[in-house]
Nucleic acid binder design. Structure first.
Length: 471
RNA sequence: GGCGCGGUAGCCAAGUGGUAAGGCACGGGUCUGCAAAACCUGUAUUCACCGGUUCGAAUCCGGUCCGCGCCUCCA
């Protein structure tokens, strides 16, 4: 396959995905705030990042993937208090839910998943560095702010001029109480002095009790686990400003080194043509999807069916379409396996009939193009299989290649659930088969209806039948 | 106002100068007692609209209409 390239938000151009150190591609992705169930829009970002990693690895490069957990911030504190739980108990619960969803979506676990609350001393250390270098100042109440004016390159990622940043442009944003302590409206909090509503969630610092600001955790933890300079930093497109801009300002001011080399941002997911929001009632979670009888893989397929840089519109129809498409992919895998028979299955690589698919992925993760090319091959293989024109050895090679491709997309097919039908359904099916053999079709059809009424379908083959749960 | 994205078949969605991928849905067919499943096969003279450049444009340029995102803590 070709060397993967990615659209880099910083240079606004395609850049090769190669490790600066020639060995390991080190990247950091902003993870979830664990204060409730992640929604399918969050998962678009995480699934795309998962794909990025898989594609880099398919190209033969080792990766080191770090993704944080935001478990101390306004929302986690507010919500845990509202529920009368300790911050730890609260965030641990939602972290576990998040992990379960990731697993269902077959997202690889990051190599390191640092928790913000577990790294407060590290964040304090970086704030001290910033203070020492004059990039930060302590306000009267003991909060610490980043002095945006002190960092010339501020705005270089989002290409916002400082003038525009400091001017509020027709938008009324909630004014925070601490606004008046800041030298400039564009300065942001590194450390927030303790407030009554924070309750017991307070940590000591050289500036008094309080808690870290939001942006500093990513700066401190990425530098800790990936080094002062690393290959790529990713997140949803909404994070470009201010979060990533602030991370750059913090990290580069503190270390004096360039921060992330490449910036990777994915577009948002909308639902039924509208932005997801609680008030519209269209903020779906994986559990909502599953409650409607779809499995997580279908969601993964939907999330990859559009290009990551384009807004993607989620609809229930698109999930249905994904489910059907996925069924076809799985079917071909099974057929190849069967055609391979006893032939030894060789090791897989990216060269072969699926190379165009890998090349499409390597081309800025063009998943729609890749799926198109994949199905083109699927079609030719289906045809050959149907004509019995596939020798076992070739089928084995293709099967290995096919599996590897499914892996690269992160598609995993649950083995056919041989969960047996209830005894009464089996008895009906037996009776129907007997009736059919006796050419008593009226009775056979009547029995089939009874089976259908019980939620099963019966499918005849030449020498028998199979029962499957009705979908 | 600033930055940015988009309008391609019923739905989803690639394609950034060489004559419209692919998926789903739908129609026809093979198979079947009939189905189902599986496979075969068909379906955009056309890419929001108007001009222009070019031998040639969905793709480039100018303009118009429409939709969307971000602009201090939302992936």
């Amino acid at each position: 396959m070709n060397t993967p390239v990615i659209y880099d938000t910083f240079t606004r151009a395609l850049q090769p995905l190669q490790p600066a150190d020639g060995a390991t591609f080190r990247f950091y992705c902003c993870g979830p705030t664990v204060y409730g169930p992640a929604h399918i829009g969050n998962f678009r970002t995480f699934v795309v990042q998962d794909l990025l990693r898989r594609v880099i690895e398919a190209a033969g490069t080792t990766t080191r993937h770090v993704r944080n957990l935001t478990d101390v911030d306004d929302k986690t504190i507010r919500q845990s208090q509202a529920e009368g739980k300790s911050l730890t108990a609260f965030t641990t619960y939602w972290r576990d839910q998040f992990h379960a969803d990731c697993e269902a979506l077959n997202c690889l676990s990051p190599h390191v998943e640092p928790s913000a609350v577990a790294h407060i001393p590290l964040q304090i250390r970086m704030i001290e560095q910033l203070l020492a270098k004059g990039h930060a100042y302590v306000a009267d109440d003991g909060s610490v702010y980043y002095r945006v004016q002190s960092f010339d390159a501020y705005g270089k990622l989002s290409r916002l001029e400082q003038r525009q940043i400091t001017t509020t442009c027709g938008h009324q944003h909630a004014q925070t109480d601490d606004e008046y302590d800041r030298e400039s409206a564009s300065d942001f909090a590194l450390w927030k002095a303790h407030k009554p509503e924070d309750g017991p969630n307070v940590w000591d610092s050289p500036w008094g009790p309080g808690r870290p600001g939001w942006h500093i955790e990513c700066s401190a933890m990425s530098v800790e686990y990936l080094g002062e300079s690393f290959d790529l930093h990713g997140g949803g497109e909404d994070l470009v400003f201010p979060h990533h801009e602030n991370e750059i300002a913090q990290s580069e001011a503190a270390t004096g080194k360039p921060f992330a080399r490449l910036w990777f941002h994915s577009a948002h997911l909308s639902v039924e043509g509208r932005k997801m929001s609680k008030s519209l009632g269209n903020l779906y979670t994986l559990a909502d999807i599953q409650a409607r009888g779809f499995d997580a893989m279908a969601l993964r397929y939907v999330l990859l069916s559009g290009h990551y840089r384009q807004p993607l519109n989620f609809t229930w129809d698109s999930l249905k379409a994904a489910q059907s498409a996925l069924r076809r992919l799985r079917q071909l895998g099974q057929d190849l396996r069967q055609a391979a028979g006893e032939a030894p299955v060789p090791g897989a690589h990216t060269e072969g009939p699926f190379t165009p698919v890998y090349d499409a992925l390597a081309d800025n993760l063009n998943t729609p193009d890749a799926l198109g090319k994949w199905f083109t091959v699927v079609h030719t293989l289906e045809k050959r299989l149907h004509q019995d024109a596939l020798p076992a050895a070739e089928a084995a090679t293709l099967y290995a290649a096919y599996q590897h491709l499914c892996d690269t997309f992160g598609f995993v097919f649950a083995p056919d659930q041989e969960s047996p039908a209830p005894a009464e359904v089996q008895a009906l099916a037996e009776e129907r088969w007997a009736a059919k053999q006796a050419r008593d079709f009226a009775r056979a059809d009547a029995l089939r209806n009874e089976i259908t009424d019980r939620g099963w379908t019966v499918q005849d083959a030449k020498d028998g039948y199979t029962l499957a749960p009705a979908s």
